[in-house]
Write a protein that binds this DNA or RNA. Sequence first.
RNA 1: GCGGGGAUCGGAUAGUGGCAAUUCCGCUGCCCUUAGGAGGCAGUGCCUUAGUGGCUACGGGGGUUCGAGUCCUCCUCCCCGCACCA
Length: 1005
Amino acid sequence: MSVNFQKIEAKFQKKWAEEEIFKAKETKNKPKFYCLEMFPYPSGSGLHMGHAFNYTIGDVYARFKRMNNFNVLYPMGYDSMGLPAENAAIQAGEHPKKYTEKAIKNFILQQKRLGLSYDWDRMLITYEPEYYKWNQFFFLKFFEKGLVQKKLAPSNWCPKCNTVLANEQVHNGKCWRHTDTDVEVKNLEQWFIKTTAYAEELLKDIPSLNWPERIKTMQENWIGKSFGTEIAFEIPSFWDIKEKEFVFLHAFQDNSKSAFWDWLKKQIEARGGTVAFAPDLPNTNEPKIEEQINFVLKNYKFNKNTVLITHSLGGVLAMKLLPKLEEKISCLVMIAPPLKTEFKDNKKRPVLEKYCDWKFDFEKIKSRAGKIIILEDKADHIVPFGHPEEIARNLGAKYILSKGSKTHFNGNVEPEVLNCIFENWPIFTTRPDTIFGVTFMVVSAQHPRLMELVAPGQKQEIGAFLKKIKSTSEKDAFELEKEGAFTGSNAINPLTGEKVPVFAGNFVLADYGSGMVMAVPAHDQRDFEFAKKYNIPIKIVIQPKEENPEVELKEAFTGEGVLVNSKEFSGLGNKEAIEKISSDLGKKGIGKKTVQYKLRDWLVSRQRYWGTPIPIVYCEKCGIVPVPEKQLPILLPEKVKFGIGNPLATNKAFVETKCPKCRGPAQRETDTMDTFFDSSWYFLRYCDNKNQKAPFDLKKIDYWMPVDQYIGGAEHACMHLIYARFFAMALRDCGFLKFGEPFQNLFNQGMLHGEDGFVMSKSRGNVVNPIEMIEKYSADALRFYLVSIASPDKDFSWSSEGMESASKFIKKIVDYFETAKTGKSSAKMESKINKSIKEISLNIEKFEYNVAIIGIRKLFDALSKEESRGTLESFLKIIAPFCPHIAEEFWEKLGNKKMIAVAEWPVADEAKINPKFEEEEKALDKLIEDINNIVKIVKSKGKQPTKVFVYSLPQEKQLLLENIETIKTRTSLETKVFAVNDREKFDPENKAGKAKPMKPAIYLE
RNA sequence: GCGGGGAUCGGAUAGUGGCAAUUCCGCUGCCCUUAGGAGGCAGUGCCUUAGUGGCUACGGGGGUUCGAGUCCUCCUCCCCGCACCA
């Protein structure tokens, strides 16, 4: 008898679709359950076995939950923009859209053939403008919120991808998509999303997530919090302070003694500088620009040595004043200057609106100052985020984003102000206790500001060094020898006053801390190696117990000890010294305890075509202008020329536009977004995928979110899973969500390898195609095999024997149900099935599918030719999540009208579970084992037994009689059962006397 | 180096502190057979035996316990992730 699996599969796949069995609607009648798999990147080569594995795991769960009376949302979509599609399309000479469209169609067909129970109505495709429009929308929301920033930073460039990559997408110095390609570090202006703003929350929540331990620690390491101290090292070669005249201009409603002014004055004087002019401005409560300008010009003569320092509104005064000067001043430093009067606290300040016209002649201002430095407070409560930055951009000024000790730099002590004036270079260290042992500094060779430090005489040497390390960058990072070159600058140790040389080095990261480290060769192995190589002195400041300090070190001592050569701190234990030195530095305003994260901001811009256009316009007059929401979506033009570089950049129709603000000529941003932007919120769109007016309806989100079970590979631990968590938190703070953690439970499936144990790949020829397996064995057999071989979270290798075995088992089930009779089940069977229901339900719940399968096989073995309708139905229900097609088929044959996919999961009847049956079964097994053992012995003596006589205690005879058929088949012997007290028993050798409880006696003939 | 996970029959995979061994594969034997794949039954650590017994054994060493594959501790090996993070 052969079954046509293909026919059954097609029949029920059609029926599921027609009856909309899997359509999810919001309802209060049932608890909701959101089951989600990481959506695929639809490649041209179609569904691979890893996909099939992932989706089978999810589908079993969704089906199980659905049968357990949950209102299940189980959607599917396609992550369909990005580089591989673009590259593959170019190679195939096709447009990426056409190419991807085809791939998706193919994917859908293949997924349907696996019998996956998706609600296809909720499908989403990220390349559709209806979707990516909302990417742009969120980008703008983040922009408003100050979470988007364009900055010059060391960026990872993949020469194969021809674009920059996010930090997360660089693995071991290589591109995550091109494991043979080194990324190059380039200093580029790129768009960043400030994931670091949520570093703390991203870290803090991790313990509360029900995720695999592995993933949680990976994220913890990735975020990488470390506690330490920030210490300002002055690098005085920039300044000859004694020549300068410092001038202060205070803020609105302030005076020359408010905020940090007094403290700053002392700091300047301590360095030998003079404060030439620090007036109380006239009418500071109702200031008038003309009056203040006249006052300042009357009382102070600006000259080429003037260093003008302003705070807040003082900056506006400076910007109005400078164009009136004839001579250029030395330097203008503006602390938190506002650009207009739309302040963050929403308080109306008509006085300030009247203060001036708020229009600035940036070109003129620029020409009146030798150097301009602007400082912004990231947590400013008054000046809106980005104002100082915008001023800096217009002035071509040096811009520093930092954090005041009080918001808006209102503190009495503001080290950041000093840092930006004196070119202090703060460094981060976890070992402030070793500060007396600093003998040099090392700045990252990739640091954007490196050249500022290089003295004219050292330019050549540094240039040669940079060239050298670039050409050796292919070497693996970890065995790279530490190298460097002297910059010609010196730094001053703030506690000793010692001058130490500043080197550029290849072992310092540009984007961790401040890109410069204090080097303590005696107590840091890296610094030690560097010092040895360049003959830099090594100064021991921590004495390990009982060791002679005169002995020359062979390596750095990094253990605990007592401070020596450390002035007043000598004698302290080094742990204590960390605290003491930090607080001492704090008091002096040259250091503070801080935390550092390894997490970097998310670089989202890509110099490629097949992505969401970034909704930004560059206007000659207005600068960077976000596109107004009403103009969204900015469509990705379909007609483009692929060639060298980004095809958007050469597309005039796309680039040329009008400024949304001034209607003047402007250019569009031609970078597109990282596709991880798309995948960071797709799970929200599923909740309301057809919404034209909003990314989603908040009520629907409230109903479905968060995702109850997320399923996917571990490769996204530090990419997608971090971005998506960040997105949820950011959207929450933008008012879109009520929660910050989108995925409560996460399951990671293992990696599926080829039969040879290697990753499946065409070049190895070990690829097994799921559709071929479905055609050869049936979808149910494939599904059954995939979940039966190993714990789903363990890696495993494909096995064709395993596949065969699963297929045989499925056929056995089919054969059984085609011949089984409906009648009565034994109490034993009732006990067994109820126990199985209990155990298997728990196994599925815990993703122990392989154990569930073991249980199913055991249960199946126990089925007799005739079973009750309830037993048969329960069995079908149990197998339904794994092999839904045949389950439906025989469910229907039993006369059920409603489909099994929505039938109720069986409930275990505890009363029917009786351990007695198991004991009896064990005893029977033992009896059969004994008989077979004796047969073996007897045969070895040359006899051929054909009959077995079993003698039981009287009360056990009935039980044996019931099992006489079993004994027969399992021993292949004619079987007769007697009770020991039966008079007419056949017992020529008097074996009956050996019978014991649950252990009958045996005679063979 | 740091972190995570592992090590159980020939292979894979189960195993609440209570008789170690589940299921699949492989192998061996027998049965069935339309001779074709298959299917059924049994066996598969060692010894012993017309059975009801003994021994060995959960990577290795210690420990807790009446009792440990399971809990604690140290070590070895394997896999995975991160790694010049100051």
